[in-house]
């Protein structure tokens, strides 16, 4: 019975670790303190004229610019255009890149044949293809989504493949000896096993899809934040540029937080600390 008590103790310890306790609250307090500190440093830099005031306006000016963007009705349609295109690009990348990546992981011969070409494609700066996409697809949402997709799809492909390759040999043997067919291996072993890597790809892919979309907008587009940034930079109206960048970053962060919450619920089985 001694061994049973020993095991029960181990379970209790794990449960306490998972709850976290007072430590979590402390983290949030520190987190919320960062923006005011950053604002303070910014204001100080402005007042001390550490940089050209045209290039680094005061926080107040940037706030006024934000209000002005909101009032003039310029902000929301363009923001929706950019974020919408980025989300569509992300979704397409996930839907296309993930199964392809899982298959590449499951079929080493396919990787041997296609790998060098995929790596070559991946090392091309796809943002440089933006002019091609604009000529092919026009200046609407399609070309932006295409650029965003071309950047983010490789992240899903490579991460999904890595997730599959990282599948424990033990797990693979267990499934094999339990009589799994190829399809069962795909759905019961490889896909769930690759989920952590896929979620990592989602977070990274969000950033890169947004990057691709904004780059395409800066080049040529009917609407979007990238266009606004170019427009305001032309007359060095930097307050508006910073306002737009901060708003964009805020939305992207919110999306990442949502992703994190979904990930935490789906991947609750992961050990919180290494045993």
């Amino acid at each position: 019975m001694v061994s049973v008590a020993h095991e029960v103790e181990a379970v209790d310890e794990t449960a306490v670790r998972r709850r976290g306790g007072r430590g979590r609250l402390g983290v949030w307090v520190w987190r919320l303190a960062v923006p005011p500190v950053a604002l303070g440093i910014w204001q100080l830099a402005y007042q001390l004229r550490l940089s050209n005031r045209a290039l680094l306006p005061s926080p107040r000016t940037v706030w006024d610019a934000t209000a002005s963007l909101q009032d003039s009705g310029v902000l929301w349609p363009n923001l929706a255009s950019t974020l919408g295109a980025a989300l569509v690009a992300l979704a397409l990348s996930a839907l296309v890149g993930t199964p392809f990546g899982v298959l590449l992981g499951m079929l080493p011969r396919a990787w041997e044949v296609l790998g060098p070409y995929l790596n070559a494609l991946n090392s091309m700066p796809r943002i440089a293809l933006a002019p091609v996409f604009v000529v092919l697809l026009g200046v609407g949402q399609s070309s932006k989504v295409a650029v965003g997709f071309s950047v983010a799809v490789f992240i899903f492909m490579m991460n999904a493949r890595a997730g599959v390759l990282g599948a424990d040999d033990e797990h693979r043997r267990v499934c094999l000896t339990l009589g799994a067919s190829k399809a069962q291996m795909f759905w019961k072993l490889y896909v769930p096993g690759a989920l952590p890597a896929i979620f990592a790809a989602l977070r990274l892919g969000m950033v890169y899809a947004l990057l691709g979309v904004v780059s395409s907008e800066i080049l040529a587009s009917q609407s979007g934040v990238g266009q606004l940034i170019v427009s305001y930079s032309a007359t060095l109206s930097m307050a508006y540029v910073y306002a737009l960048l901060i708003i964009l970053a805020a939305f992207a962060s919110a999306l990442t937080l949502v992703l994190g919450a979904v990930e935490a619920s789906l991947l609750g089985w992961q050990p919180s600390r290494p045993r």
Partner: peptide
């Protein structure tokens, strides 16, 4: 034929019950 390995090989994303059911699912 059943095979029990040196390391448990439990799928970490499945509960104990779901792990036991694995072979029956297959």
């Amino acid at each position: 034929v059943g095979y029990l390995f040196a390391r448990d090989g439990l799928l970490p994303w499945r509960t104990a019950r779901q792990n036991v059911e694995l072979g029956l699912e297959m």
